[in-house]
Amino acid sequence: MGEVVAARDADAPGGLAICGLGSCVAVFLYEARRLRVGGMAHVLLPEPLPGSPLTAPGKFAPTAVAALLDRLIQLGAARGALRAKLVGGARMFAFGPRESLGDRNVAAALEALQREGIPVAGMDTGGTAGRTLLARIDTGEVRVTSLRGEPRLL
């Protein structure tokens, strides 16, 4: 949790995966045209808290998106070609405030992407089921599976 991974397609031929995602949100960025580099952040919280360790920017939506973007650009990504797909942000237990941690994570990730000017090309978020996802850098495709229902392709 809290990882930020960026890779060239050739270095991650099987794609990037996160297993057992609950209220956390996966932000996947890929190049819409050249499909050569892509990356993923596993976001835990909508924003850093006072006193949060800043050693792990990947934990918080705004810093995770910024860190992922930095790494992709270092790898030679064309910024204008980047697209985002978002997965996760479920409410695993039916209780608590109307807006769950998952909802807040999704909203914060969307806000950060908008601020960076990255269009969102697909989302599978919210609901009450945990998710596993596999994101392909070479196609931009994200396959989402859960213990309920059929796999979803984004």
Partner: peptide, 23 residues
């Protein structure tokens, strides 16, 4: 509260809410 789901997805909420960004 009850959930039937993947272990990772069930615990991430609890751990994150409680540890608030700690490792």
């Amino acid at each position: 509260h009850l959930a039937v789901d993947m272990a990772g997805s069930v615990v991430d909420y609890l751990l994150v809410e409680m540890t608030r960004g700690q490792d």
